[in-house]
């Protein structure tokens, strides 16, 4: 098996708050090869975004990566110096953020923000860098990129800004892009366009992609494999079709059943009872135990992430095999 582009092993990121230690990411492992698309799914606060920031080394205090390994093309990113890490960021590893209205600096022109991203990693003249910036804008479907380069972020709509952010992420042809709910803040038609665009670009350049989202429909159309996260842990992982059609973990099952299109008109939506527990006071054993319809005494003991079927791992004592 060839070396994976990214191999995350037992990642632990904790936040040391005044009220205690919040284990935002606990024992998370996954890997993906070049050109592969991985969907990272879960509710708000399940640790998806923190996982993304941990990989880039951008966790702000009081958060801290306290354990595990992040092997990027065989190199452990957690062992790199700040300067080495700076050189990886934006160069080999790029990220697109959730809110396009906030990701571009409002007082700097688009060209400034794009050219600096190129010149941070390569010694090229401003003219050459500008040309590459223009090409990148063209690639993400922005009309008359020459004019647009001289504009300021507030002259763009949300969808356009997200395209610019994606263009910036693509500038240095990274091996991996982490997209943190990049279409959540956009309306549905723009969402579709951007999804299509990203899919095409990744296929063309062989860039691996981690798509963080809570939208199962998006993942279904985009990703090959999926990791479902709950309370900082991966509770189920497998191929998209398998997991969505035949979820083994009761949480994945609940998540999929709560999608409106699965329900008949006029019937109450299925929902997962209760609320996401606070990371500061997780229940002992399985964190989903208090909301789980099939929890029993055994669930007070921490389950392990085990191979339930080929290529499918699950973090549960009672996989939902019989129900389909």
């Amino acid at each position: 098996m060839p070396q994976p582009t990214l191999d995350v092993r037992n990642l632990q990121t904790h936040f040391f708050t005044r009220d205690g230690v919040a284990k935002a990411v606990e024992d998370v492992s996954f890997s993906l090869g070049s050109g592969e698309v991985l969907g990272l799914v879960g509710e708000s606060g399940s640790g998806k975004t923190v996982t993304g920031f941990s990989i880039l080394g951008l966790v702000d205090p009081p958060g801290e990566v306290v354990g595990g390994e992040i092997l990027f093309k065989g190199r452990n990113l957690l062992k790199l110096s700040e300067e080495e890490m700076r050189n990886v960021r934006g160069n080999h590893l790029a990220m697109v953020f959730q809110d396009p209205m906030m990701t571009l600096n409002p007082v700097l022109r688009i060209d400034t923000q794009m050219i600096e991203a190129i010149q941070a990693h390569q010694k090229v003249g401003t003219d050459v860098a500008r040309e590459r910036a223009r090409d990148a804008l063209g690639k993400v479907g922005i009309a008359s990129p020459d004019e647009r380069l001289r504009a300021y972020p507030h002259q763009f709509s949300g969808g356009m800004r997200q395209r610019v952010a994606i263009a910036i992420a693509l500038l240095n042809q990274p091996e991996l892009i982490i997209a943190d709910e990049p279409t959540t803040a956009l309306d549905v038609t723009i969402q579709g366009q951007i999804l299509h665009e990203v899919q095409r670009l990744c296929r063309e350049t062989g860039t691996a992609l981690i798509w963080i989202t809570h939208d199962l429909a998006v993942v279904a159309g985009l990703a090959e494999r999926i990791c479902v996260m709950y309370a900082g842990r991966i509770v189920e992982t497998g191929s998209v079709d398998e997991v969505l059609d035949r979820p083994l973990h009761p949480y994945s099952k609940g998540l999929i059943e709560s999608v409106p299109s699965h329900n008949q008109r006029g019937r109450r939506l299925n929902q997962i009872p209760g609320m996401t527990p606070s990371l500061l006071s997780l229940p002992e054993g399985c964190a989903f135990r208090t909301r789980c319809p099939i929890a029993d005494v055994e669930c007070r003991r921490l389950p392990s992430l085990h191979e339930a079927e080929t290529e499918r791992r699950i973090f549960c004592h009672h996989p939902q095999r019989e129900t389909a």
Binding site: L56, L58, R86, G90, T103, N105, V107, A117, A120, H121
Partner: peptide
């Protein structure tokens, strides 16, 4: 967010402070 995004681009600390922050 734009400061974090600028860091994610791999900019140096001095550029972050003297350009992105200062302006």
């Amino acid at each position: 967010d734009y400061m974090k995004f600028a860091r994610a681009k791999g900019l140096s600390e001095s550029r972050l402070i003297f350009v992105h922050l200062m302006k």
